[in-house]
Amino acid sequence: MADDGSKTFTIVHRGVAAFAEGCFAAIRNPNSHEAGLPELPEHEALEQLAAFSVPARWVDTGKLET
């Protein structure tokens, strides 16, 4: 969403950042930093992959402002 100065932009931007941070904190970090975790069942791994696909799409469709 383009920054139009609206409250909606602020809320969406904050939500995107919180969602991405949550994905990294709850999914990526434990699986990357904890040795000996059991392998996830396929359906859970696919759910986690789907969760990461959302912020990945947002980043992919975003535009860098300099």
Results as ranks from 00 to 15, higher is better:
Met1Ser: 07
Met1Gly: 08
Ala2Gln: 14
Ala2Thr: 09
Ala2Phe: 07
Asp3His: 05
Asp3Cys: 01
Asp4Glu: 02
Asp4Val: 01
Asp4Arg: 02
Ser6Trp: 03
Ser6Glu: 01
Lys7Cys: 02
Lys7Phe: 03
Lys7Gly: 01
Thr8Glu: 11
Thr8Phe: 07
Thr8Asn: 05
Thr8Asp: 09
Phe9Ser: 07
Phe9Pro: 01
Thr10Trp: 00
Thr10Ser: 12
Ile11Trp: 04
Ile11Asn: 08
Ile11Gly: 00
Ile11Thr: 11
Ile11Arg: 13
Val12Lys: 03
His13Asp: 15
Arg14Phe: 14
Gly15Trp: 04
Gly15His: 04
Gly15Asn: 14
Ala17Met: 11
Ala17Pro: 00
Ala17Arg: 06
Ala18Lys: 08
Phe19Asp: 00
Ala20Lys: 05
Ala20Glu: 06
Glu21Pro: 03
Glu21Asp: 15
Glu21Cys: 07
Gly22Tyr: 03
Cys23Tyr: 01
Cys23Arg: 03
Phe24His: 11
Ala25Gln: 15
Ala25His: 09
Ala26Phe: 10
Ala26Arg: 13
Ala26Cys: 12
Ala26Thr: 10
Ile27Gln: 00
Arg28His: 13
Arg28Asn: 09
Arg28Trp: 14
Asn29Leu: 07
Asn29Arg: 08
Asn31Cys: 09
Ser32His: 11
His33Tyr: 14
His33Arg: 09
Glu34Gln: 14
Glu34Thr: 10
Glu34Met: 12
Glu34Pro: 01
Ala35Phe: 10
Ala35Trp: 05
Ala35Glu: 15
Ala35Tyr: 10
Gly36Asp: 07
Gly36Val: 07
Gly36Arg: 04
Gly36Pro: 00
Gly36Ile: 04
Leu37Cys: 05
Pro38Cys: 05
Pro38Leu: 03
Leu40Tyr: 06
Pro41Met: 04
Pro41Lys: 07
Glu42Phe: 08
Glu42Asn: 08
His43Leu: 10
His43Lys: 10
Glu44Gly: 01
Ala45Cys: 01
Ala45Tyr: 06
Ala45His: 05
Glu47Ile: 08
Glu47Asp: 12
Glu47Cys: 08
Glu47Phe: 08
Glu47Tyr: 09
Gln48Arg: 11
Gln48Val: 02
Gln48Met: 12
Leu49Phe: 14
Leu49Glu: 11
Leu49Met: 10
Ala50Glu: 10
Ala51Tyr: 06
Ala51Ser: 10
Phe52Trp: 09
Phe52Pro: 05
Ser53Val: 06
Val54Pro: 03
Pro55His: 00
Arg57Asp: 15
Trp58Ile: 12
Trp58Pro: 00
Val59Arg: 04
Val59Asp: 00
Val59Met: 09
Asp60Val: 08
Thr61Trp: 09
Thr61Val: 10
Gly62Glu: 04
Gly62Leu: 03
Gly62Ile: 00
Lys63Phe: 08
Lys63Asp: 06
Leu64Ile: 13
Leu64Ser: 15
Leu64Cys: 10
Leu64Asp: 12
Thr66Arg: 13
Thr66His: 13
